[in-house]
């Protein structure tokens, strides 16, 4: 169980990125983490990984995250965390040495699926290929909890669709995914639970099963939680048009 208890983060600039976030993610869950820009999604992931100083506690099965258990977490980020000058093959060797549960078979299967070259430096890959490789590394590390922060930024819709299917096909029952993305409608059929962040707080937490039972879509849920005013754009346009007239 990955648990965040009262996780808070205020940057030196004074902006409060996370405000008392409580969140528990159990084994085997696929959780979508949603929120507007600046809601705190990336900051929460970085706090979980211990990349940022924060208040509150993050635990893995009751233990704080330290170098001893950090390998149970993997991270795929749109910022990319690979070594650009190394080849995919060199990455495989490095991950094999440092992550004892590295999934070699899965690595090769995904490399074949996305037809990525093993002997080219990753910096020579296209943007889409780089994203794919970043995600491949995160999925192959052998982590129990796979954190993904906007991993498909820059990939086309077919590529993303393929990836969701592959993701569902290869994950083992104990593997957990925490996926941060703005692509709500695309991922709604692949996630089992949606967590909404708003201004650094958990504004909503619902399973897709609950949504189905209520006959609501994920987008409806998000709009209701954020109190989205659908007439906002029309009003603004009308106001603008009136002024011009």
């Amino acid at each position: 169980m990955l648990e965040c208890k009262a996780v808070s983060k205020t940057y030196l600039t004074g902006s409060k990125a996370l405000d008392w976030v409580d969140l528990s993610v159990g084994p085997g869950e696929i959780v979508g983490l949603f929120g507007e820009n600046g809601a705190g999604k990336t900051t929460l992931m970085k706090c979980i990984l211990g990349l940022l100083r924060h208040g509150g506690a993050v635990t893995l099965d009751g233990e704080p995250v330290t170098p001893k258990n950090i390998a149970r977490l993997s991270f795929a980020t749109c910022e990319h965390s690979y070594f650009p000058a190394l080849t995919a093959g060199a990455h495989r060797g490095f991950y094999r040495d440092h992550f004892p549960k590295f999934r070699e078979k899965r690595f090769h299967a995904l490399m074949d699926f996305f037809q990525l070259p093993m002997n080219k430096a990753v910096r020579s890959f296209s943007t889409g290929q780089r994203n794919q490789f970043e995600v491949i590394l995160a999925l192959s590390q052998g982590a129990d909890y796979i954190l993904m922060d906007e991993p498909f930024a820059g990939n086309d819709v077919f590529n993303r669709e393929d990836f969701y299917k592959v993701l569902l096909g290869i994950l083992e029952p104990t593997e957990t995914v925490l996926l941060s993305t703005h692509l709500l409608e695309e991922v709604q059929h692949f996630i089992g639970r949606a967590v909404l962040l708003h201004r650094g707080r958990v504004a909503g937490d619902v399973t897709t099963l609950e949504l189905e039972e209520q006959g609501r879509s994920l987008m409806d849920f998000v709009k209701e939680t954020y109190q989205y005013r659908a007439d906002r754009v029309i009003r603004a346009l009308n106001d603008l048009t009136d002024k011009e007239e």
């Binding site: 950090i70 390998a71 991270f75 965390s81 650009p84």
Partner: peptide
């Protein structure tokens, strides 16, 4: 040069290694 985050946040990987 190899240690600088150029084109990627390599530090995210280095900070997830058991070696510290």
């Amino acid at each position: 040069l190899p240690g600088l985050d150029r084109g990627a946040k390599t530090g995210y990987t280095l900070r997830r290694l058991a070696v510290g």
